[in-house]
Amino acid sequence: MPEPLVSIRGLDVRFNGIPALRGIDLDVGRGEAVGLVGESGCGKSVTWLAALGLLPHTAKVAGSVRLEGRELLGAASGALDNVRGGRVAMIFQDPASALNPVQRVGRQVGEALKLHRGMDDKAARAETRRLFELVGIPDPARRIDVYPHEMSGGQNQRVMIAMALAGQPELLVADEPTTALDATIQAQILDLLRRLQRETGMALVLISHDLGVVADMCSRVCVMYAGRIVEQAPSEQIFARPAHPYTQGLLGALPDMVGPRRRLSAIPGGVPEPWNLPSGCAFSPRCHLATPACSLQPPLLRVEDGHEAACIHLHAREGVFA
């Protein structure tokens, strides 16, 4: 297997001693699209904020994050500035608050071009225009000079994507990029991300609570729960044959779009508080399969090629999926 673009090993994050991430191992290959799904507080965003050194100083980060073999954790901020917005770019859920409201959008994109690609004013303006065209902003020559509040949420997210592309990233981390957008606009932005990924060959990490969005966009999916990856597999496998009871629960809780309506199989209870995690498998208090053996932390076990799940009952139930 070729060396992955990003390799995360044993990533641990604590805020004031309270665990947010508990040993994340994750590889992202060149040009690969990986989805991270899970509910609020499961650590899907923190994983990437920690990897890029974007967490506040109160956060204790341990483990290793390598970008093509070079360690990022604890690297000098000068070295990180080259990575952030350059080799790895990130976009967020709420574009309106990520953009500077009192600066014209073109200038904000131009700033990234000057910083990461050493362009002068004129070159940056021309390149900004090209990027606006690339991300499908109508009338780019005029839109360069407007302020964020003069554009819709979907257009602002396109500006954010243009800004992310300014540094010609090898990896784009998109954190809930369409959650704040309407359904038809979400479809436009997802389409754009898919096209850009194909055209530029960059890798994509898509963080989302929406299993549908991830299934649509990513070839591989990691499901997170309470600061750990509990299952990872190629998209088709995880949705056709989910192995971890939590993944099965998430899929069962989604209403169907076709076929007869059935009562939703809700997962009982709620996500545990991070300061009050059960010992062993954090999902066990909500799990219908839980036994006393679940009080030991299960490692990721092989389900089939490229498909792993952290559940000790996996092998006992193997017959179900054979």
């Binding site: 609020s40 609570h209 299993l211 809780a253 199989s265 809700a266």
Partner: peptide, 11 residues
């Protein structure tokens, strides 16, 4: 609400 909680409230 999160997916698993959403299902509880819908039910």
């Amino acid at each position: 609400l999160d997916v698993s909680i959403q299902a509880q409230v819908v039910n």
